[in-house]
Amino acid sequence: MLTRIILALLLPLILLALWQAAAGAGMLSPAYFPAPLQTLDALTTSVVTGKLWGPFAATAWRMFQGWFAASLAGVILGAVIGFSRTARELLQPTLEFLRPFPASAVIPAAILIFGLSNAMAVWVIAFGSIWPVLLSTLHGFAAIEPRLKEVSAALEMRPVDYLRKVALPSALPDIFTGVRISLSIALILAVVVEMQSAQPGLGQNILLAQRMYRSPELYAGIVVLGLFGLAISWVLERVEQRLLAWKIRR
């Protein structure tokens, strides 16, 4: 385990060391490529002074709201559509058409409708991140083993019990895949919407640092976002391992 961690970190550390050496030797312009230690310095300063936490919390909370709304709506809609063949044939083509639509392109329209507000940002994030969870939930409910429907029928199971005991557990692996992809899209959109609409957050900080040529701060923001993305996907993986123990066991 430890050797694996060391091996995994080896390449990034070597690259950072090379970068640091090149910057120290004056081979890189500090305006564009500040030395990694400078970035680390900017990062620790913003952590210590507490300057980081406000924007960080704003971005995380915004992302979470949008993602949560998207997941809730996506699972419910996906279940309804997945259950009914008619609903599926009616709605699926439209949904597939809407899916590749870049959510960042709706930001101007969202600003027009909702103004420069947090609600606007949450709407954009939810719109953009609903697709993976919606479509994979839909697939999960549509792909329930027909034999299990017959088993449930032979036991005269009530519809609510069928949903709880058969349909939901059966669709859960698909739902989880969707929820995970949606979360990473939600983070991307949280940052993009901040940059485009001047909402306070890490995205805006990065943009402002760039405009003021404070590149160590710019890179520090990117590092924080990267670590945050890593952390939430780690948490989701743990949750998935618990909920889907029967599937991930081997």
Binding site: L148, A153, A154, E156, V166, L244, W246, K247
Partner: peptide, 22 residues
């Protein structure tokens, strides 16, 4: 006219008839 608990079915494809998560 519909299935009943009085009539139990044992399917040939046991692999599909069991709930894999239980």
């Amino acid at each position: 006219d519909r299935p009943s608990r009085d009539r139990a079915i044992v399917f040939q494809d046991y692999g599909r008839a069991l709930l894999p998560w239980r």
